[in-house]
Simulated assay, not measured.
Amino acid sequence: MKKTFLPILLFCCLSLPLFARAMPCHCFSVRDFDPGQPAAADPYFLATTQNSFFSVVFGIEKKKVIFAKQKPRVTAEGLWILYWLAQRSGKDPAQWKATRKAAGSWPDALSGAGVSENLLPPRVMSLLKKGAGDNALASFVVDDLLAGRTGTSPKELQGLRAEGAGDAETILACLLARKTGRQPGELFRSVKNGSSTWGTLILKAEMDGGNMVEEVKSLLGPD
């Protein structure tokens, strides 16, 4: 019995790092703001706000967004693109996923699906023609949704991106700006230069960091 058990135990121990790399972790040890460690919960606030925004703008339960991101070979960038295209075309995200996989590239997928260039903004077509990857396409999608739902100007969004804001940071900065009346760039810079943290800004804005879906709904209003 021992001879059989030991090889199995050894295999399991050696396999754990592989499984850890294969499935991204969406768990956070710190989810509440702590004045003694004001930046400790920032990764959670960024993730939960991004997932909540996704949930609200696409009308999908937040837990389903989180579960989707935990599947093998699924990325946050890919989900933004799939659901945005589905919203614009009326075609199911799963159909777009299958079409993209079969075509091998987004330009071929769109062409094969018979999507008219008029359906997509000129900026998207320009990115596709330049061979832009999912990161650039997803950032455009995020900015497009923020402009449409929060009223953030293209100039403000361009400024955030130019200063190094990623998708999650851009989303949280724009929502905080809508809540407080401050400029998104000003908020982002205060975190970037270390004079504040996302948790501190959320606290001062009296946002409920533990229920961001409702916060986002209240800020965006009806579609």
Rank of each mutant, 00 (worst) to 15 (best):
Q87V: 06
Q87Y: 06
R88P: 10
R88D: 07
S89N: 12
S89K: 09
S89Y: 08
G90M: 09
G90Q: 07
K91L: 15
K91R: 15
A94W: 04
A94Y: 05
Q95L: 11
Q95G: 05
W96F: 06
A98S: 13
A98H: 04
T99H: 04
A103R: 09
G104F: 12
S105T: 12
S105F: 04
P107T: 12
P107N: 10
P107Q: 07
A109G: 08
S111Q: 15
G112D: 07
G112C: 06
G112A: 10
G112V: 10
A113P: 04
A113D: 06
G114A: 11
G114M: 12
V115E: 15
V115C: 09
S116H: 11
E117S: 15
E117Y: 08
N118Q: 15
N118V: 14
L120R: 12
P121V: 10
P122H: 08
R123D: 13
R123T: 15
V124R: 02
V124E: 01
M125E: 05
M125S: 12
L128C: 03
K129T: 12
G131C: 03
G131Q: 01
G133K: 04
D134R: 01
N135H: 02
A138M: 01
S139K: 04
S139C: 01
F140E: 07
V141D: 00
D144M: 00
A147Q: 09
A147S: 08
T150S: 10
T150Y: 01
S153K: 02
E156L: 03
E156P: 00
L157I: 14
R161I: 02
R161K: 13
E163D: 15
E163Q: 15
E163F: 04
E163M: 12
E163L: 11
G164M: 02
G164D: 03
G166L: 01
G166K: 03
G166P: 02
G166V: 00
G166N: 07
D167I: 12
A168K: 05
A168I: 00
A168H: 02
E169T: 02
T170V: 02
T170P: 09
I171M: 08
I171K: 04
A173H: 08
A173K: 06
A173N: 11
C174F: 11
C174N: 13
L175G: 12
L175V: 04
L176S: 11
L176T: 05
A177E: 04
A177I: 02
R178V: 10
R178A: 13
K179V: 13
K179C: 14
T180P: 06
T180K: 06
G181H: 05
R182C: 03
Q183T: 08
P184D: 07
P184H: 06
P184C: 09
G185Q: 10
G185H: 11
G185P: 14
E186F: 11
E186P: 05
F188R: 05
R189F: 08
R189K: 14
